[in-house]
Design a protein around this nucleic acid. Structure first.
Lengths: 242, 242
DNA sequence: TTTCCTCCTTGATTTCGATCAAGAACGACG
DNA sequence: CGTCGTTCTTGATCGAAATCAAGGAGGAAA
């Protein structure tokens, strides 16, 4: 699964759409030179501040986006306000739902975020003519499906302690697109967001973080900067087989 | 989302692979006559008894399958035995994970099941040459992703009562491929399975079922045959917006 | 029939996480 | 500087679901 992820991200296709510039792989790597130059007439780079929505639950979707920097949370909300984060997207992930113009979830910037926005119609048209592009979108969907199912096990069967450890482990292995795992990072989510991701209250998240701190499994500074002393230990607490 | 589901299932493409015979849409509907006749040299119809595995967690995957009849549960298990059902597949769903020969989950027949097995290599080869087929697989992945994320909300944020109602609602709307919803059905899962799908114990499932029965929201016969008196009421208890 | 066996229900008790409540830490702003 | 407002932590209490325990219902096989 992680092999596949790398396959997309570290693809050796040198081309990317102009608005996005050199660094990210995203889905644009699958396009031909002509397609890219056509597409880049429509793409636009956007900065989204923490808390701002890319689009709301139930709204029609106008565009796709490649994340260049930052973290985007995908959330579902019940009529009474209960909320669940159903996915976290990191650079250089692709955001969007092919074949459907309406989204059953809302996408919100968890941190200050930069994206490259692609008009939906333009990319859909290209996907119809580029099997390689469709293949990439398909692959991204399958990776997200694997991740969603992994998380279902966390939500349904893990304890609060295991959930918090699972979250920290997830961040450590996803926050930096250049490294497979990292021992020090800034939490991209508030305690409330972490609770909404784990199906817990902020108090429970806080208490479990405190415990992990007391047990010297993590170190926390300013509530945001986390150091993991030993990733294998964290994985063990999380109940994850690495 | 359900519109898309219909799109696959009720497709007007008349062709299906020979082993599977007339009724199901599956992914075969996307194939040309030649592809079908080539494929049907390799396909085989199989009967899988309740409880038998199509394949186990971590095992390499040899084949795809179209479900002709029955219900298949996709499960993940932790080293200590805790289990979570991460997906239920009904006829005529497609089972398999394109682009990966190893599965992170196990697929097990929840009821007596009939499938049409397709050798993975043969279908992969065809998908490379048939954009329409790839499109169908892609679409199925996206539908499963939507369903997985819906369920994450259920697992993370709903009460036991809402979870059980959500499960019954899911079965009522999925058990019969010919109808959008149905008020009477045989439960395809044991209490243990329902618990593993909802992240609950069998005792809690049983108590909530008893309550729903006492409140005349459902009627249950022989522990298996359920009648839903009013689907809208059930949906409301489940916290689902229909 | 009787004996298992599996699956399900029900009751008693415990426990983990939610809820309620208070205060600490930090930054923004007058 | 002090005063908000927000976010996080900690403590006390509550409650929903888990756990522990017992027994019932139905089916298969002797």
């Amino acid at each position: 699964m992680d092999a596949l992820r790398k396959d997309i991200h570290n693809s050796d296709v040198p081309l990317v759409c102009r608005s996005c510039e050199a660094r990210h792989g995203g889905v644009c790597g699958a396009l031909t030179t002509e397609q890219l130059s056509e597409l880049s007439r429509f793409t636009s780079r956007k900065t989204i501040n923490t808390g701002a929505e890319l689009h709301g639950q139930g709204e029609p979707v106008r565009s796709y986006a490649n994340i260049l920097r930052g973290v985007v949370k995908l959330t579902k909300m019940m009529p009474d306000g209960r909320q669940q984060i159903v996915g976290l997207q990191f650079a250089p992930d692709f955001i969007g739902r092919p074949f459907s113009s309406e989204s059953a979830l809302s996408a919100e910037a968890a941190t200050d975020t930069e994206v490259c926005a692609l008009p939906k119609a333009a990319l859909d048209r290209m996907a119809n003519n580029s099997p390689d592009l469709e293949r990439r979108l398909h692959n991204q969907a399958l990776i997200e499906l694997d991740e969603a199912r992994d998380w279902m096990l966390t939500l349904g069967r893990k304890t609060a302690r295991e959930k918090v450890a699972s979250f920290l482990y997830l961040i450590a292995t996803h926050i930096d697109p250049d490294k497979a795992e990292v021992l020090q990072f800034e939490l991209p989510l508030t305690r409330q967001d972490i609770g909404d991701f784990l199906g817990l209250t902020i108090e429970t998240v806080s208490r479990q973080m405190t415990k992990l701190r007391q047990e010297k499994i993590i170190h926390v500074e300013n509530n945001r900067n986390v150091t993991v002393h030993n990733l294998a230990t964290l994985a063990e607490v999380a109940g994850v087989d690495r």
